[in-house]
C-alpha cells in the first residue's frame, strides 16, 4: 500500500454550498462512478433554558486529527469498494444554519457509497479530536456534547 501524506481536511469557517456543488461537478469525468452519497452536518440552534445557540466555535488537535482521518480513509478503502471519499470539517466560527461537516463518498454502486458515508460520519464524531463550543447571544457558552 502506498504511503500518503495526511491531507488537511479542515476548512476555516463554514463550508459553502457552492463548494459542495463544485465538489459534485468535479466528479463528472469519473464515469465509472454510479453513486454518490453525501452527509452534511448543519449547526443547530439548540435552546438551553431560555437561551439559543447562535454559533459553534470549533477547535481541534489538528496534527492528531489528520493522522486519525488518514487511518479512517485507509480503513474505508480496505472495507468498501469506493472510487473516492472526501471529508471536510470546519474550524473556527460557524453560525446556526451553516454547514460544518461535509462527507462525500463515491462508488460504482450505491451500497458501498451509502454504507461508507454513514460509517465515516460516525467515526468522525467519535474518533476525531475536535471540540465545539456553543456560543449564545449573551456572550455565554457551553461545550457541545455529542450524542
Amino acid at each position: 500500500m502506498k504511503e500518503r501524506k495526511p491531507k488537511n481536511f479542515f476548512v476555516q469557517g463554514p463550508i459553502a454550498a457552492s463548494f459542495i456543488a463544485e465538489s459534485i461537478q468535479d466528479h463528472s469525468s469519473r464515469t465509472g462512478i454510479g453513486a454518490h452519497s453525501i452527509f452534511l452536518g448543519q449547526v443547530r440552534a439548540d435552546r438551553i433554558d431560555d437561551k439559543e445557540v447562535e454559533s459553534i466555535e470549533y477547535t481541534a488537535y489538528e496534527e492528531m486529527a489528520l493522522d486519525k482521518m488518514h487511518a479512517i480513509r485507509e480503513d474505508m478503502f480496505a472495507k468498501y469498494d469506493l472510487a473516492c471519499m472526501h471529508v471536510y470539517h470546519s474550524l473556527g466560527n460557524v453560525r446556526t444554519g451553516e454547514i460544518s461537516l461535509f462527507v462525500f463518498t463515491s462508488a460504482a454502486h450505491r451500497r458501498a457509497a451509502i454504507d461508507a458515508c454513514q460509517e465515516i460520519v460516525e467515526r468522525v464524531k467519535s474518533e476525531l479530536p475536535v471540540w465545539g463550543k456553543e456560543l449564545f447571544g449573551d456572550q455565554s457558552f457551553q461545550w457541545k456534547a455529542n450524542q
Binding site: 470549533y58 470539517h89 461537516l101 460520519v121 468522525v124 479530536p129 475536535v130 471540540w131 465545539g132 456534547a145
Partner: peptide, 10 residues
C-alpha cells in the same frame, strides 16, 4: 502530551 476532553466534532 495532550489532554483531550470528550470529542464533539461534526
Amino acid at each position: 502530551v495532550a489532554l483531550l476532553p470528550p470529542y464533539s466534532g461534526g
